[in-house]
Simulated assay, not measured.
Amino acid sequence: MLAALFADFVGLIFPQVCLACSEALTRGEDHICTACRAQLPYTDYHKLPEAANPIARRFWGKVPVTHALSYLRFLRHGRVQHLLHQLKYQGQRDVGQVLGRWYGTELTQQGLNQEFDLIVPVPLHPRKLAKRGFNQSDCFAEGLSASLQVPWDAAALCRTEHTSSQTQKNRTQRWQNVATVFEVANKASVVGKHVLVVDDVLTTGATLEACVAVLLAAGCRQVSIATIACAEQ
């Protein structure tokens, strides 16, 4: 009782704000207010057959992806872009964890928690990791792991080269930029498993395609992908 009263008092003096709209949160709201959560642009691709999934189509003829999943639609200057900016550049790791938990709950309701053996985040190069201090994909993986009850391993994949930003590149340039920069650190950790590779945003899919290729070459039974958001093409 006293702890709850103290928390309410602290909240009045130093109110937590929604990381999507910056309005004050009320009791029970988890980093994102109820209004913003209701208005987030959900894809619901996990409810579609793969043949009707526009994310899955981006990988057709390139690498075999069992499930292609993305929680939200990325819209410029929208709530999702703001949330991802908070996550990547403002150090708000809770954004990735919360969205991972929420999405993991939805995937579990669809029975997908029974499909995956391991969650693997797309790695940053050690130089970029040292500069940023954390990998935003790790945060998403951690949240998904908690809801799906599937282990995650930040060290399963490693990035061997420090590449330039993908932001201004077309699909061919993005693929050339990442085609040979990923390696499986410990093949025994992935052999025979259905691995879910996770990242923050899917654009052309070049980065995830490169990760899927090396995981399958290392002996994964199946590979699926999931991202916080996907950009329209």
Results as ranks from 00 to 15, higher is better:
residue 18 C to A: 08
residue 37 R to L: 13
residue 100 G to K: 03
residue 195 V to R: 07
residue 23 E to P: 12
residue 220 C to W: 06
residue 104 G to C: 03
residue 107 L to H: 12
residue 230 C to T: 11
residue 187 K to A: 15
residue 233 Q to P: 11
residue 157 L to F: 02
residue 157 L to S: 00
residue 220 C to V: 05
residue 69 L to Y: 06
residue 200 D to L: 00
residue 190 V to P: 05
residue 214 V to M: 00
residue 87 L to P: 09
residue 193 K to A: 10
residue 168 Q to P: 07
residue 163 T to C: 02
residue 136 Q to Y: 07
residue 47 K to N: 03
residue 198 V to D: 05
residue 123 P to I: 12
residue 179 A to K: 15
residue 40 L to N: 14
residue 21 C to G: 10
residue 14 F to N: 03
residue 177 N to M: 05
residue 45 Y to S: 10
residue 104 G to D: 02
residue 204 T to I: 12
residue 22 S to R: 12
residue 9 F to P: 13
residue 212 V to N: 04
residue 168 Q to H: 00
residue 111 G to R: 15
residue 170 N to P: 08
residue 108 T to Y: 04
residue 51 A to E: 13
residue 35 A to H: 00
residue 219 G to R: 05
residue 138 D to A: 07
residue 107 L to W: 14
residue 88 K to L: 12
residue 149 Q to L: 10
residue 166 Q to C: 01
residue 88 K to Y: 05
residue 52 A to I: 02
residue 24 A to C: 04
residue 8 D to V: 13
residue 25 L to M: 12
residue 31 H to L: 14
residue 26 T to N: 08
residue 184 V to Q: 02
residue 168 Q to D: 06
residue 172 T to R: 15
residue 110 Q to P: 11
residue 152 W to A: 07
residue 134 F to H: 06
residue 24 A to D: 01
residue 209 E to H: 07
residue 93 R to E: 08
residue 20 A to V: 14
residue 170 N to Y: 01
residue 151 P to K: 15
residue 27 R to Y: 02
residue 183 E to A: 04
residue 28 G to I: 13
residue 207 T to Q: 11
residue 112 L to Q: 03
residue 11 G to Y: 01
residue 34 T to I: 09
residue 34 T to W: 14
residue 99 L to E: 08
residue 156 A to V: 01
residue 84 L to G: 07
residue 14 F to M: 14
residue 50 E to T: 01
residue 118 L to F: 09
residue 143 G to Q: 01
residue 136 Q to L: 03
residue 163 T to L: 03
residue 3 A to R: 13
residue 190 V to H: 06
residue 181 V to A: 08
residue 114 Q to S: 07
residue 64 P to M: 03
residue 105 T to P: 09
residue 53 N to M: 12
residue 189 S to A: 10
residue 123 P to R: 04
residue 113 N to T: 07
residue 102 W to R: 06
residue 54 P to T: 13
residue 31 H to E: 09
residue 15 P to C: 14
residue 181 V to P: 12
residue 160 T to A: 05
residue 197 V to C: 00
residue 16 Q to E: 07
residue 53 N to D: 09
residue 220 C to M: 08
residue 131 K to M: 00
residue 201 V to S: 09
residue 26 T to W: 08
residue 108 T to H: 13
residue 110 Q to S: 13
residue 46 H to W: 09
residue 26 T to M: 02
residue 210 A to L: 07
residue 221 R to G: 05
residue 202 L to W: 09
residue 86 Q to F: 08
residue 176 Q to C: 03
residue 197 V to H: 04
residue 206 A to C: 05
residue 217 A to E: 10
residue 204 T to S: 11
residue 57 R to P: 08
residue 98 V to D: 02
residue 158 C to F: 00
residue 108 T to C: 07
residue 61 G to T: 13
residue 221 R to E: 15
residue 85 H to I: 09
residue 120 V to F: 03
residue 78 G to C: 03
residue 177 N to Y: 03
residue 139 C to E: 10
residue 43 T to Q: 11
residue 112 L to V: 06
residue 30 D to E: 11
residue 9 F to W: 11
residue 103 Y to D: 06
residue 210 A to I: 03
residue 152 W to C: 13
residue 17 V to G: 14
